[in-house]
Simulated assay, not measured.
Amino acid sequence: MSAPSAFLAVDWGTTNRRVFRFEDGAVVHTERDDRGAASVTDFAGEVAAIRERFGDLPMLLAGMVGSTVGWRVVPYVAVPAGIDELVAGLDWIDDRTAIVPGVSCSAGGRADVMRGEEVQLLGAVAGWMVPSDALLAQPGTHCKWATMKDGRIGGFTTAMTGELFALLRGHSLLARALTAEVTDGDAFREGLAEGARRDLAASLFGIRAASVLGVRGDADAASFASGVLIGADVAARMDDCAFEQIHILADPGLGNLYAAAVAATGREPVIVDSHSAFARGVLAIGDKAL
């Protein structure tokens, strides 16, 4: 089965979503808004409104729309997972509206889950943006580190790096010192080196001590703190990494910070556009499902 000449897809996160309209295998229009799954109560109404605006077309929905805060809970597909497994796990709302399942894994006694990222990961491979065997990082509130094997998701780890930074910035002893914008400068690079020691709790309190003693100005504290968290996250993934290139699926801002952290470990970072990866992934699903 091949995808229709036109269809819609929604990358539906917790706080935001992005709508794509595809025609003849290409994205012809995309828009982002703040109608994330956590703010929606009438998903059927939202889907109808999307069709009214973007076209009365078949639709694939991915991300948190299939979670406990979404339209309905769609069971996870276990790793190893590729496009075929996602298609088999589609939850059809009606004959032209389906929710893409998330992916789960369990290794070493630790369970992990993702929703939405799986479309980007598989799309990056399907679109020849990354090799079929690779380590991919998806920075964000919860950073995903996925090992791709033979073009499928073989396993992954989630790190709460972005959420920890937000919590420190909003509710911790350090909050008043972490108001500046994060930039890739000397303070951030110093933070990367500190984070690589992976004594995270002590390193973070050191930010407070440096402020009190005047060792580091508060203007640099946010960049240093971000460096500590990202540096610890990246260093932990490099311990048993067999790849010299690390592919980073992200927008340039956050992607560049992770690229600096990867480069500091001696690996080569390669930034991949996450929106293009999602588009390629949902196209591959649509080719088999619609």
Rank of each mutant, 00 (worst) to 15 (best):
T158H: 11
I153K: 04
A159W: 09
G155D: 14
V125E: 00
C105K: 03
A137Q: 11
C143M: 15
D133N: 14
T147P: 06
W145V: 06
P139G: 05
P131S: 08
L121Y: 10
G151Y: 02
S132C: 11
S132N: 12
R110N: 09
D133K: 12
D133V: 12
G116Q: 07
S104K: 14
S132I: 09
W145Q: 05
G155T: 09
M129Y: 10
K144R: 09
Q120S: 08
G140S: 08
G127L: 11
V103Y: 03
M160A: 11
L121Q: 08
G102Y: 00
W128H: 14
C143K: 00
C105D: 14
W145N: 03
G109Q: 09
S106R: 12
E117Y: 01
P131N: 07
A107V: 08
R152C: 14
C105N: 15
L122R: 02
L122T: 01
K144Y: 07
R115D: 01
D112W: 00
V103I: 06
W128D: 13
V125P: 02
E118G: 00
G116P: 02
G127P: 08
W145Y: 10
G127T: 12
P101W: 07
A146E: 01
A134I: 07
L135R: 07
I153M: 05
R152E: 13
F156M: 08
A137D: 10
G151I: 03
A107S: 11
C143N: 08
Q138I: 13
A126L: 01
A107Y: 03
V119E: 04
Q138T: 14
D112V: 07
V119W: 04
L135M: 14
R115Y: 00
M129Q: 12
P131D: 07
D112S: 10
D133Q: 11
D133W: 11
V130D: 01
T157Y: 10
V113I: 15
M129A: 14
S132V: 10
R115F: 04
A126C: 08
G154A: 12
G151V: 06
M160P: 05
T157M: 11
A107D: 06
M160S: 11
G151Q: 03
K144P: 01
F156E: 03
F156W: 08
A107N: 01
C143W: 08
A134N: 11
A137I: 12
P101Q: 11
A124H: 05
H142A: 09
G155N: 10
P139R: 07
L122D: 06
V125Y: 01
Q120I: 01
H142P: 05
M114P: 01
A146Q: 05
V119L: 07
P101C: 15
G127A: 12
A107C: 00
V130T: 09
T157I: 12
T147W: 14
G116A: 07
A146T: 04
S106T: 11
M129P: 03
V103P: 04
A146D: 06
P139S: 09
K149P: 05
E118A: 00
K149Y: 02
R152A: 13
A111R: 15
